[in-house]
Nucleic acid binder design. Sequence first.
RNA 1: GGCGCGGUGGCAGAGUGGUUAUGCAGCGGACUGCAACUCCGUGUACGCCGGUUCGAUUCCGACCCGCGCCUCCA
Length: 462
Amino acid sequence: MIRIYNTLTKEKEEFRPIEPGKVRMYVCGMTVYDYCHLGHGRVLVAFDVITRYLRHRGFDVHYVRNITDIDDKILIRADENGEVFTELTGRMIQAMHEDEARLGVLSPSEEPRATAYIDDIVAMIQRLISTGHAYPADNGDVYFAVESFPEYGKLSRKKLEDLVAGARVDVQEAKRSPADFALWKGAKSGEVSWPSPWGDGRPGWHIECSAMSTKCLGDTFDIHGGGPDLLFPHHENEIAQSECATGHKFVHTWMHAGAIRVNKEKMSKSLGNFFTIREILEKYPAEVVRYFLVSSHYRSQVDYSEESLEEATRTLTKLYHALRGLVPAKPGDVGETEHDRRFTEVMDDDFNTAGAISVLHAVAGEINQHRRDGDEEAARNSAAVLVRLGVVLGLLQQDPEAFFQSGSDDDLTAEDIEAMIQARADARKAKDFAEADRIRDELMAKGVILDDSREGTSWRRA
RNA sequence: GGCGCGGUGGCAGAGUGGUUAUGCAGCGGACUGCAACUCCGUGUACGCCGGUUCGAUUCCGACCCGCGCCUCCA
C-alpha cells in the first residue's frame, strides 16, 4: 500500500487511483524565460523518481508536465534581448531538455505548451463567464470572481478576508474584489496576442494549467504536483478555475516538493541566490547532483552547498566501488530479496528516498562482504539487486569505470594515462620507487587518482 | 499579524512508544614498497518545560528557536 502526503488534507493517505492500475499525474513545469536552476531540478528529479517508482509498482502512469511558453516575464525578457519571444522560449526549452537529460530525468508522457492550447483556454474562460464565475472588465482583461467560489483557499488554508485585508494584493479599479485574478489579459498595442471574444490578448498565468491538465487528463485526475512556491496562488487558483468550469473535483492528491536553500534562505529568482543546473554540472558529475537531490526526502527543505556536493561525490564513489570490476547477474535471475522488500516498504511510505538509499548502502555492504569471502557468484547476484534498485532512483546505471573516468580529458587522454600507469608499473617492478612515485604525483597533479590493487592499477578522475 | 513546516550524535539525514537507520568526517585495524583508494571495526543522539504512560526522542500542551507562504518565483 502506497501512502502519499496530500497537501490538500495535510495527511498521509493511502493512494487509490481513480482507475485501478492507472495513474494520471500533472506537474507544473517551467516558465521558459531563463535557464533552470537547482530548485527546478529538484522538482524534475522528485517527480521523475515518483513516476519511476509508481511504474516499478506496476502502475500505468500517464505523466503530463507542461511548459508555460507565454507570460509577462517571457515577453519582458524577449524584449530586453531584442528577439521574438518564440526564439527565447525555443532556446530555453532546448536547454531545459538538455539539463533534464543529463540529470537522468525521463521524458514525461506528454509535454503540452500553453500556446498550443489557446482554444481550450478561451473555451474554459467562456464557460467560467457563462456560469458567473468570471467577468470581462472595462480594461480588456477577464477576471475570475473569487467570491463566486466558496471553497477558495482550501488548499493553502487562507481566508478570503485575510487576503483582501492584506494590502499586498494588487488593488485594481477593474477588479470587483482585490483577490480576483486575471484569466485573460487584454493586449496593449503591439503586444503578442490571440483573438478572443473579449478582444485580442493572452492568457493569465494560472488558466493554462487548468486548461491543459483537464484536456490531457480529464476533469478529475490523481496527482498534481509542483514546487513549494506554487501552492499559493497558482494551485489555489487552478482549483478555483477548474472546479468552477467543470463542476467536478479537480485533483485527488496534491504534492509539493520542499525548497532548495542557500545559506538558510530559499533559492529563488527574486532573491537572485540561485545556481543554474548547467553551472553546477560544470563542477560536478550529473549523477552526483542527482544523488544529492535524492538523498533527502522530496518534501524536506535542503541546503545546497559545495560541501554537500563533495560529500555526495564521496558517497556515490563508494557505491560504485562496490560494483567495480563485477559483472552483475541478470536481474531476472535473482529473486526478490529482503533488500527489495525493505526498499518497497520505505518507498511506499511517501516515497522515502532517503530510506531507500540506506537500502542501497546495505546491498553495497553485502557485495563487499561476498567479495571478502571470495564468493564471486553471490557478489554478482547482490550487484544485480543494487543495480535494479538503482534503476528506480535513476542511480548507478553507468559502467563504474565510466563513472570514475568521466570528466575533462583536456590534459590527458585515457591512453596517456594507461601509458603512464604502465611506465610506473615497470618502475615498481624494478624497485625504482622514486620514479614510480614521481609518475603517481604527476598524474595526481593532473587530477588523476590511481587505485592500486592485487589485480593491478586502475584510475579515476578527481 | 494570519496560515503552515521543522528543531535527531561533529556534520548530513531517516525513523520509532520499550530493540541497529544510513552516509560523511574522526578513531583503530587489514591491505600497500610507502601512500592514496578500498575493506573491516568503532559512536547510544533526539530544542526546553510540563502532562499521559510501567516506559517518550516518538503521543498531548505550553515555551524558545529556525524556515516557508500570505507578491512574480519550482
